[in-house]
Design a protein around this nucleic acid. Structure first.
Lengths: 140, 140
DNA sequence: TTCATTGCAAAAGCTTTGCATGTGT
DNA sequence: ACACATGCAAAGCTTTTGCAATGAA
């Protein structure tokens, strides 16, 4: 389970398992969609949980490093994040020499597509992104 | 030419054509790739041109409105911009009911693709992005 | 002349950090 | 006990804004 994964990550790296870090991961697991650090802090505060802004800001890089959340860019200037698990879709890099296919997933890319669709009042159902080029081996 | 386009935009909108605005647009036209406001300010300053940071920040929205530059998101938290003219490529929204095709172009999307490729050491040649769904008419 | 624009410096908003205190391991 | 973590408040950065002075039309 996600929470355990984070705890294991902390132990493994020699970081400490603190009440604050537990409450932060718990809260993230209850959230849907993207969030920014201050939003997360305020949610914790509203619930009466005592975690400082500093701890929230300091814990986020750990969550990113552990692979639990990912940064997502937005049009405004704040940093936004979302759980990695929220999307299982992925796109492809296709090598035009050897045919190798590399799968990748970028939440930012997905979000930008949503923004484009919103601007055009287009109701997105699915999409297909293929990037053609040379893989590491074939480009040498 | 690009500069005239901006000047015309200013006049048309009742804004004034000032030395500062001219120097800002001149500088942007000499640049390649993306830039952030402070970078632009420093370039002007280095050249001995007297334009304040405030004016740079105040002029950027006008340039965006005039269609000369576009905002591009980055992984760091500063705003970045680039000349719209720098890319003529575009992608497609395709209506799965009436077949209508809407072209769009997002520099941010392009840049993200480049970042994905860089991460995978993939040498991009071209790409194809199609988003399928319902256009405004067909989704009613 | 008139009203937008400029520069400066102060303010604002988000994020980071120094330091003394507290706490997992 | 030791090293890392926390909270607070101060500092850092980028961007915005109030205001008096300046300048385009």
């Amino acid at each position: 389970m996600e929470k355990q994964k984070f705890m294991d990550f902390l132990s493994l790296k020699g970081f400490k398992v603190t009440r604050e870090r537990e409450e932060i991961i718990n809260e993230i697991l209850t959230m849907k969609g993207h969030f920014d650090p201050d939003e997360l802090y305020l949610r914790l505060k509203t619930k009466g949980l005592k975690v400082s802004r500093a701890s929230v800001y300091r814990t986020i890089p750990l969550l990113v490093e552990s692979g639990l959340i990912e940064q997502v860019e937005r049009v405004d200037k704040h940093a936004h994040y979302e759980k990695v698990s929220e999307n299982s879709h992925h796109d492809h890099l296709i090598c035009i020499k050897c045919g190798k296919v590399i799968e990748f997933y970028s939440p930012t890319l997905e979000m930008l597509q949503d923004e484009v669709c919103a601007k055009e009042k287009f109701k997105k159902v699915r999409h297909n992104l293929e990037i053609f080029g040379y893989c590491e081996n074939c480009s040498r």
